[in-house]
Design a protein around this nucleic acid. Structure first.
Lengths: 214, 214
DNA sequence: GTCTATAGACAGATAGAC
DNA sequence: GTCTATCTGTCTATAGAC
């Protein structure tokens, strides 16, 4: 390996760190004031850089937002798929009233924080007007649904309970209710724990609806 | 009545018309580009006024947005409550498979257009960061839910079918699914009819879940 | 010493408010 | 139509990592 290659790696390491810090700062600022109201200046200030660093790393604010949106969605999917993996690893062992278990598994520690909720809302809002963003958003949403569907199917098999709709539909409904509940609770000004409690309750109710009564 | 009084009424009439035109124009522009990106200039141009007229009627852009948000929510509620009234007037007459009827009644012709969807998303997004807007939004949402719950209860009584959850909960779920479906379909770039079709299908599915199997 | 990521000033454009 | 504030994106000099 030549000296220049070593240098390149070192610099790109530093560069990558700068990128990440800018993305983290942007996430905060976007969540606080929204994409449009967030100035590049404010993002840089939060990250501890000046605008030179910004434009050295991103062509425009939109480009940064796009990358951030992707990151957020991927993280969301990752958390849930991790749960699927856990489930498969430990071997599922669920009893009759697994409605609540299902709930816990779907959102588990995913107790999305306020920042995450605000960011998702911001992304959704912009996706309604930006076809490219919309496509990416919908694709990642589908992936999330498939992951949740997998969990639900596994639980159904293991617990010996039958669902009134296919796992995919059940997953879609659960996710819809989950999002709606978190947004409403956050809007009502509740704190993290309360948001989670309310969301759990809502999800438990839907889970009961989804289970075939015997 | 004196001449000045007549003049005053005429003036306030004209003023009111100006306000409404500004609000209509703002609704369009906000839906198109979002609250922040919508310049007062653009709103005035759309309405056929100059900025002078704007600041004569509204103190700030935010004030106008607040008023518009209220108007949009009230309209939404009005459409649904009107349906409740119709229902009571005509006398309900629904048969076994009233799942779809329920759907039709809930959204009926409410096939919210693209503009309405974008506006609601914009309002929701801002309500997450503005407590005052959030309170108003949640209150109107509750009112809407109560109206729908009323419809559902009526249908339940008339059709002799029992629901697996209280009407309020059923209404909440239907509305959640309704909103989610319209947003997703709109995001996918579907046209008005397709959005409605997809939303109807989703709602029909949920209605089936809500009905007690016999 | 070289190289480049970053700082910070700068220009052009456009916003809101009156 | 004006005035002030602010924002974006560019450009150049430099600090600091190798």
């Amino acid at each position: 390996m030549t000296d220049t290659q070593v240098a390149e790696i070192a610099t790109s390491r530093r560069r990558e760190a700068t990128r990440q810090r800018l993305l983290d700062a942007a996430a905060e600022v976007f969540a606080e004031v929204g994409l449009d109201a967030a100035s590049v200046e404010a993002i840089c200030e939060r990250a501890g850089f000046t605008r030179g660093a910004f434009y050295s790393n991103f062509a425009t604010k939109d480009e940064l937002f796009l990358e951030l949106a992707g990151r957020v969605s991927r993280e969301r999917v990752a958390v849930v798929t991790e749960r699927v993996a856990e489930l498969a690893r430990d071997g599922v062992e669920i009893t009759a009233q697994s409605a609540l278990e299902m709930v816990q598994l779907v959102l588990g520690e995913t107790g999305d924080d306020r920042l995450g909720i605000l960011l998702m809302s911001e992304i959704r809002n912009h996706a309604l007007r930006d076809p490219a963003l919309a496509a990416a958003h919908l694709a990642q949403d589908d992936e999330l649904r498939r992951s949740v569907a997998q969990i639900i199917a596994d639980i159904g098999d293991a617990g010996g309970l039958s669902l009134r709709v296919p796992p995919e539909e059940a997953a879609g409904l659960m996710l819809t209710v989950w999002e709606s509940a978190t947004v409403r609770a956050t809007m009502a000004g509740l704190d993290h724990e309360q948001v989670r409690g309310l969301t759990n309750a809502q999800l438990a109710g839907v889970a009961q609806l989804l289970i075939e009564p015997r």
